[in-house]
Nucleic acid binder design. Structure first.
Lengths: 349, 349
DNA sequence: TTTGGCACTCAGGCAGAGCGAGTGCTAAAG
DNA sequence: CTTTAGCACTCGCTCTGCCTGAGTGCCAAA
């Protein structure tokens, strides 16, 4: 069953896929022998193609057209045939230049990453904002806006800033706030948000806290501020590249996909899957398990701060994507972002 | 030249436009006399239609099709024929419910507005984020992240929160920061950002400031924080509704528009135009002056806080938009947002 | 095992016919 | 003078049939 393909089969499969990626047209035996470096006659190629179709790597839209790769074909191509090289240094340089300006906050950097991914790949760029729970506590600050309203500003180790408005039912003096702020910053600094949450729960049960009104309020407040996390957000850039893809020229298809993008939850889920993986991940077509995204593939890679993986970024496009050129772009961008986030932390003492 | 149209002409023009808005098909004389409440024979209607075409309100795609409205036709319809009523109370209620949940920050509210506009109008919703310069200073806070990095958190009267990372070249103690914070909050509170900027410039030249190192730093810092304003941002929701419009079924057209949306600058400009106007504004087709947006119309209205206009929101769609139903939606949303922003301020003492 | 030859298939493009919606004009009716 | 009925005409849309060409599968020869 899982009989290995001969070298020749692999060569021809590779040639077909690359031709199809380049032209978006079903590729026939003749075209192959002419354009690609295949040293066989069309007839022989046809035999091989028939075999590859038998095995499920290729399909023919109809009798008198050429062959197109199936998802299984792409999968094999990506897993086995593709040799990815590093991004060439000129492009590395160009990408790096985008982040040169100083004083970029993390959110700006991620936005820029999405734009860069899109414009270098000519497909749609995706960047997931780190989920709160994987980030590390760095600083919390309470700003009193009115007697009943507090603004909680919360900064993570990696430089993500979150604000939250909290209504309070009992006034706090400026002094109280300062005490609370200092206490929390001392206690929580360097812990992951998960640890912080656990600590809050633990401390709340603690005897000392039960009787210290101010302490209790401190925990209640911080718990409110960190409580309901934004359930994942994605920065999308370059949707219009999708409109160039001939495979989605049907308006119904296009609409299906644009709607999926607007909803974001699918993209969040797909990016989430890659968060803990090493290196570049490729999700092809139905592997997404969303029929709204059928015919779409993703190339993703995780980026990380000092304390481990933060989130995922990548590119989404049709199955027929130039994997060979995009994988290095995604790979490089992810490691660049990771490096930049680390550097930002280094400035901290 | 600007000869007034007879009542009958107007009635027929109105009927044609409404029919065309409903069906997206060129409307012929027969269809009019049947479906709409026109009490004339097709032949008479034809005479009138020929006249309206002569005057530039209608056009015929080709001889044997019906007529479609020109931009001039839409303009006349919107200016003269259209009687907009208030949004019916059921819909008012439905919209209001969307903002019921407590603790919404301004940014969340605006995002929700965009979504609501889109889903109620079945077209693309737009909300412009207030520009810094039209907002009123409420509170500033400096958070020391490291010896060289400060996070400036800045809250406007209307509840917009902005963060900015500032690099400093000389360390400040916690005490210094507190002094600066207190001083700025006392001095600047209630001023518009424009006034604040003016004040900074004025004070910097002042003798006292020249010799007070700390004061000078306070002004430098706040100036850096308020300096380069984000040059306008727009929240877009419901792009996929555009894909349903038959007039843009051509992929080239679609791409042109989606790209314009991604760029945002045109939308910012168009929304900007409506910021100081009262009530609902309608921009039709080439009035946008962007050929990228040809065939697109906008319905916008300004929203305001206590201290005057803050920004603009609206809906963008094809020229053939159901103005009669969307104008009340935009109008109501703008006033609702204004009311909510005011209420939020009221809680402040 | 490879290759040339050959019959077969089928989508896409093109041309012509017919249809039908809609028009403009004219002449009669109100 | 206005409205309407009638009529010839226009022209885009759709359907049909035909043709072409790319591509296939198979077979027999190299």
């Amino acid at each position: 069953m899982a009989k290995a393909l001969t070298d020749r089969c692999q060569q021809i499969l590779e040639a077909i896929i690359e031709e199809y990626i380049a032209t978006a047209q079903p590729v026939g035996s003749k075209a192959l022998t002419q354009n690609q470096g295949i040293k066989l006659s069309p007839a022989s190629v046809r035999n091989v193609m028939a075999e590859l179709e038998e095995l499920g790597y290729l399909a023919s839209p109809h009798t008198s057209a050429g062959r197109i790769p199936t998802e299984k074909g792409y999968r094999f191509y990506v897993d086995t045939l593709l040799r990815v090289s590093d991004l060439d240094t000129r492009q590395q340089h160009q990408i790096e230049m985008k982040y040169r300006q100083q004083g970029l906050q993390m959110a700006d950097m991620l936005r820029e990453a999405s734009r860069t991914l899109s414009s270098f790949s000519h497909h749609t760029g995706l960047v997931m904002i780190p989920r709160l729970k994987v980030t590390v506590f760095r600083h919390i600050e309470f700003v009193k806006l009115s007697s009943r309203q507090l603004l909680v500003v919360f900064v993570t180790q990696s430089g993500l800033v979150q604000n939250k408005l909290v209504e309070i039912d009992e006034e706090l003096t400026q002094g109280d706030l300062e005490k609370i702020t200092n206490y929390l910053n001392q206690t929580m600094s360097g812990l992951s948000i998960q640890e912080v949450r656990a600590k809050i729960v633990a401390e709340m049960a603690h005897e000392k806290v039960l009787y210290d009104h101010l302490l209790r309020r401190a925990f209640t407040l911080s718990s409110a501020a960190l409580g309901d996390e934004a359930d994942g957000d994605v920065i999308i850039d370059g949707t219009s590249y999708f409109l160039e893809q001939p495979e989605f020229s049907d308006l119904q298809q296009m609409k299906r996909i644009v709607q999926a993008f607007e909803q974001k939850s699918m993209l969040v889920d797909l990016l989430d899957r890659g968060t803990d993986a090493q290196g570049v991940q490729v999700i092809i077509g139905s592997e997404t398990q969303y029929h709204e995204l059928s015919g779409c593939s993703l190339i993703t890679a995780a980026y990380s701060g000092r304390r481990g993986s933060l989130g995922t970024l990548g590119v989404i496009g049709p199955n027929r994507m130039p994997y060979a050129t995009i994988i290095p772009i995604v790979d490089y961008t992810a490691s660049l972002i990771s490096r930049l986030l680390d550097k930002e932390n280094d400035q901290e003492t």
